[in-house]
Structures are given as structure tokens and as C-alpha cells.
Simulated scan of single mutants.
Amino acid sequence: MKSTRPALIALFGAALIGLSSLGAASAADNDGEVTMFKDPNCGCCGKWAEHMRANGFRVKEISTHEMDMVKREAGVPRALGSCHTAKVGGYVVEGHVPAADVKRMLADKPAITGLSAPGMPQGSPGMEGPYPADRYDVVSFDAKGNTGVFASH
């Protein structure tokens, strides 16, 4: 029986390298490139990625069953969690944040860790459907635990 241990070690190493890309911003970060981590069974995450692509972003989707670890490594406060976690321009984008808010963050370059659309608000990008849209806030957060309303929808 052939051992799968080397393959598992290689896969784990690749996942760790991918997670390290969620760290601090670097000069090499490109504002138009989004790396999105998502659960392999989630459909709405792919819809958010399509929304971002339609708004000029290039999106790389990485499926993982380790979303809790991804969020922890990215510095996403538990209360601001959603279904997927992305990195763009050295910032973290948690959940169904509209592309317009991401573009504003990238243009203004605020001293924050990132933005979150906490939960999964109905009517947010990727969560469109037959139900009436929820009113929701996009929240900024930083490494010290400070939060604020970045935009209201």
C-alpha cells in the first residue's frame, strides 16, 4: 500500500503558505487581486467572487475546511465573522462586503485591518434572492479590537 503521508505533508505546507498571505501588507500587494478562502460546500461565496470580478477584481478562490483558522490568522473578530475571508491590497475582507466599499477602502487606505459584513445579510452581494434585502452595516476593524461603521446599506 502506497503511503499518502508525503502528499498530506505537501498539502498542509501549501495551506500554511496560503494562510501566511493573509498577514501584513507588502509592497508587492496588488489592489486588484483578491484571494478568497471559503468552505468548499458554500455556494454564496462563489457568487460574491463573481460580484467582485464584475467590478474589476481578479479573484482566486481557495477552498478549505479550516475557515476558523483562516479567520483567526487574518485577525477577524469572532463577532464580525461571516462565511468567507479574503485578502486584497493588504486588507482583510470578511463576508459579503460590496465591491464599492472595497474600492473605497483601497483608495482611502485607512489604518484598519479590514472590513466585514457580519453574518450573511440578505441582499448583500452574493446573497441576492427572492426575499427583501436586509439593511446592514459594513464594519471596519483593526488589530486592537476597534470597530466602526464604514458604510450602511
Rank of each mutant, 00 (worst) to 15 (best):
N30E: 09
D31S: 08
G32I: 00
E33H: 08
E33C: 01
E33N: 09
V34L: 00
T35S: 06
M36Q: 02
M36A: 02
F37R: 01
F37D: 03
F37M: 03
F37N: 01
F37L: 02
K38F: 01
D39R: 02
D39S: 14
D39K: 00
D39W: 00
N41M: 04
C42H: 03
C42L: 02
G43L: 06
C44E: 05
C44D: 03
C45H: 06
G46E: 10
G46S: 12
K47P: 01
K47G: 01
W48A: 07
A49K: 00
M52E: 08
M52R: 00
R53C: 00
R53A: 05
R53G: 00
G56Q: 04
G56T: 04
G56K: 04
F57G: 03
R58D: 12
R58F: 02
V59C: 06
V59D: 08
K60Q: 13
K60I: 04
K60Y: 00
K60T: 14
K60L: 06
E61I: 13
E61W: 00
E61T: 12
I62D: 01
I62W: 03
I62G: 01
S63T: 04
S63N: 14
T64W: 05
T64A: 03
H65E: 13
H65F: 14
H65V: 14
E66N: 13
E66S: 14
D68Q: 14
D68R: 13
M69L: 15
M69A: 15
V70L: 11
V70H: 09
V70P: 09
R72L: 14
R72N: 13
G75Q: 04
V76M: 07
V76S: 08
P77G: 08
P77F: 07
R78N: 09
R78H: 11
R78P: 01
R78S: 13
A79N: 14
A79I: 10
G81D: 13
S82D: 13
C83E: 07
C83K: 02
H84K: 07
H84P: 09
A86Q: 12
K87S: 15
V88R: 08
V88W: 10
G89A: 09
G89I: 08
G90V: 10
V92I: 15
V92W: 10
V93S: 11
V93P: 12
V93W: 12
V93Y: 11
E94Q: 13
G95R: 05
G95D: 08
H96G: 12
H96W: 11
V97G: 10
V97W: 11
A99Y: 11
A99R: 07
A99I: 12
A100G: 14
D101C: 15
V102T: 09
V102N: 06
R104W: 12
R104G: 10
R104T: 15
M105C: 13
A107S: 15
A107M: 09
D108T: 14
D108C: 02
K109R: 15
K109Q: 14
K109F: 07
P110H: 03
P110E: 06
P110C: 05
A111K: 15
T113F: 05
G114A: 09
L115I: 11
L115R: 10
A117V: 05
G119H: 03
G119W: 01
G119N: 05
M120Y: 07
P121I: 02
P121M: 04
S124F: 03
G126E: 08
G126M: 10
M127L: 06
M127E: 01
M127W: 02
M127K: 01
E128K: 04
E128W: 03
P130M: 13
P130H: 12
Y131S: 03
P132L: 01
A133G: 11
